[in-house]
């Protein structure tokens, strides 16, 4: 099995050190070799199972409910928020704007 560990790490948004890349590539090769045993089975006529129980979409009205968690409480636990505590704060997203 061939894959590009660098491309995977980019997709998964994880920085990997050089040694880590080597080690994890090796692990992934072995695991993929192991899981490929399912290729022995003929499954052309088999339906895939994504979910074991027959379930339906669940909808509700979009309304404020009394048991909702307050925005204040959510903002209080952020890794970083604006000084007045009412926004998520993240590093600059758009380049070239000061």
């Amino acid at each position: 099995m061939k894959f590009d560990i660098e491309a995977l790490a980019q997709l998964a948004r994880i920085e990997l050190g050089h040694k880590e890349k080597e080690r994890l590539s090796g692990d992934l090769v072995n695991i993929l070799k192991y899981v490929e045993q399912i290729d022995e089975l003929k499954t052309d006529a088999i339906e895939p199972t994504s979910h074991v129980l027959a379930i339906e979409n669940v909808f509700r009205e979009d309304e404020i409910r009394e048991d909702s968690v307050s925005a204040r409480k959510v903002l209080d636990v952020l890794p970083d928020s604006s000084k007045d505590g009412s926004f998520f704060r993240v590093p600059k997203v758009i380049e070239g704007i000061e």
């Binding site: 894959f3 995977l8 998964a12 994880i14 920085e15 992934l28 993240v90 997203v93």
Partner: peptide
């Protein structure tokens, strides 16, 4: 920048097995 923050946070925040499974799942 934001993108680099994602990469560094996830690198330092996740252990070996978590990285292994995230990469495998992504693949």
């Amino acid at each position: 920048n934001l993108r680099e923050m994602y990469f560094k946070t996830r690198d330092e925040g996740f252990g070996d097995e978590a990285k292994r499974r995230i990469l495998l799942g992504t693949f």
